[in-house]
Design a binder for these strands. Structure first.
Lengths: 138, 138
DNA sequence: GCTCGATGCTTGAGAACATCAAACAATACG
DNA sequence: CGTATTGTTTGATGTTCTCAAGCATCGAGC
């Protein structure tokens, strides 16, 4: 019977978990010749198209950064820009079909994470899902 | 009554959680004028000293990368190199006291994550701790 | 309509980070 | 020993990052 972990312990474990997940993600992305930043961008866009600015906010980087990243993704036809119909300053970025396949493939290839999740029962997966949703809400 | 999430849904949520955590971490690190890579390195070293090679492995990057990152951290006295006593090729990197304080401060300042964890009861925190340990073992 | 401040994106300069190949020293092992 | 292997560094090249500046567009008010 484990005692309650301190918040610091939980932060430490979170850091470790994130770091493991990130390493897994990065090497799966590298298999597709994608950098971590490029793949992270695809991952964010998997949920929904987004403007340059909101992408930058989600990825915690400067907006000027996104220009280059999206340029390179667009050159490979993984993503496309579209001027917003309601505000001509805004450019909405969306995944192409190829881009969608790419990020799905990356997630399928994250073996460490997949193996880890396989160790959970259905109830445990449901509970993990619930807890993560509480801690990291949309 | 939530149904069991599919593995893909769980991967998606994990990606979102990691991304939120990462953004939080990056901006807390920036407050201390540390880049994400530098702070991540400190985070790994918080557990235990490590050689250049094992750092590179944990951070999923080339060993030659670490040279520059550790150089810059050492210049700011957050970390120090020490030639291994058993193998003179190996350099072990360890946090200085300043470095330890830096990473602890960063974790304390991760407001989004802290706020999220505060939403959990003690039992839930214990359970999250257990589940993460299963999915991402040491 | 017009001006003016704010907003969204891009560009350019300079630092950090990433990968790869190649070098070097030290070790391991036949 | 001699030879292969390992751990770290260096150098070249491309990507990412931050910051300041630029341009176009929007929105609120006159």
């Amino acid at each position: 019977m484990p005692s309650t972990p301190s918040k610091a312990q939980l932060m430490e474990l979170l850091a470790h978990s994130v770091s493991t997940h990130y390493a897994d993600f990065t090497s799966a992305a590298a298999d597709l010749s994608l950098t971590a930043s490029q793949a992270k961008t695809l991952s964010v866009l998997r949920r929904a198209p987004a403007s340059m600015r909101s992408l930058a906010h989600t990825l915690a980087c400067d907006a000027s950064n996104m220009t280059g990243i999206i340029d390179r993704l667009e050159k490979r036809d993984l993503v496309h820009r579209e001027v917003s119909s309601t505000d001509r300053r805004v450019k909405n970025v969306a995944l192409t079909e190829t881009g969608e396949k790419a990020i799905d493939t990356i997630r399928e290839r994250m073996e460490q994470t997949q193996t880890g999740l396989d160790k959970l029962s259905e109830e445990e997966r449901t509970e993990l899902f619930r807890l993560l949703t509480v801690v990291f809400p949309h």
